[in-house]
Simulated assay, not measured.
Amino acid sequence: MNKMDYMEVTLPNYSYVFNFEEEFIHQDTRVWMMNNWTNCFYYCGIYMILIFGGQHFMASRPKYELRGVLSLWNTLLASFSIIGFTRTAPELIHVLRNYGLYHSVCIPSFIEQDRVSGFWTWMFVLSKLPELGDTVFIVLRKQPLIFLHWYHHITVLLYSWFSYTEYTASARWFVVMNYCVHSIMYSYYALRAMRYSPPKWISMVITALQLTQMIVGCAINVWAHQYLESGQAECHISRVNIKLSLMMYFSYFVLFARFFHKAYLGGKSSSKSGKKAYANGNGHIAAADYSNEKLKAN
């Protein structure tokens, strides 16, 4: 299947297309990313200096509550994720329904055609930079900062920006799944920051969704690898990308599974720790606010 084949596919029937979506030009953003994606290494370096330097700075100082700012931050991210999900999910559903699994994994139909999905994919990639700000709340509120949090933020940023330069076809899966989980997760934390008390089981469901996301992410990469190795059809994803993505998703799965076990299945001691952290407020591993931090799944 060549480029002309996947440029001729039909598009989802969007009820409305905004002007800024209609004016979106894929090639311009791809050229920009190809010229600038390596800057994210500098951003990650600055991020590491700020968060660990910030922890040292806050060690002898009282914590900040920041509940109002945190409520606004989570509300904005929840709204962004909900909109992103509603604008990208139709393309994935349309492709699966009309063209099947192979097309959804290997053929980037949004190239130069689906400007709606393309625009929100671009927004998704860019959003990984400001999302580093999640960690600021952990540092200023003097909450525990564990490896999974900053490791996740850094690797998601690096992988997302790199993948955009290749127009990786399987990215449609990753983008839709991430938007979906974030829609629920940030809404939950916005309510918590506003002092509402959603049922605790919701956080467990969110962590289960995160684990499911990791499993699906690994499966997508395995399928892409099989398509490439068969040599029977074109698959628009590089072997390097598959290796990086598979390692990333598998590492997330191991770390989130470990967290899930400690938070929910580790016995009385884990249960007490989970309840204590849950009572303290905002977290980002979506489970029981077990470590009082913000963790997102990609």
Rank of each mutant, 00 (worst) to 15 (best):
V181A: 06
I154Y: 10
N178A: 06
I184W: 12
T165L: 13
H152E: 08
S183N: 00
E166T: 11
L191P: 08
Y179E: 01
M177E: 08
L158T: 09
Y164F: 00
W150D: 09
V156K: 07
S183P: 00
I154S: 07
H152K: 07
M185Y: 03
Y188I: 11
M185R: 14
L191F: 14
L191R: 13
S170H: 00
S163N: 14
F162M: 13
F147L: 15
Y189Q: 05
L157H: 04
S183W: 07
Y189A: 01
W150P: 08
F147A: 13
S183C: 04
Y188R: 02
Y179R: 05
C180N: 12
Y179A: 02
N178F: 03
M185G: 08
W173V: 03
S170Q: 00
E166N: 11
R192I: 14
W173Q: 06
V156D: 05
S187E: 07
L158E: 06
M185L: 15
M177P: 04
H149G: 10
S170M: 04
M177T: 11
H153P: 13
M185H: 12
V176L: 01
L157K: 13
T155M: 13
S187Y: 12
Y151F: 11
T168P: 08
Y179G: 01
S183I: 02
Y186A: 07
T155H: 11
R172T: 12
L157S: 05
Y167I: 09
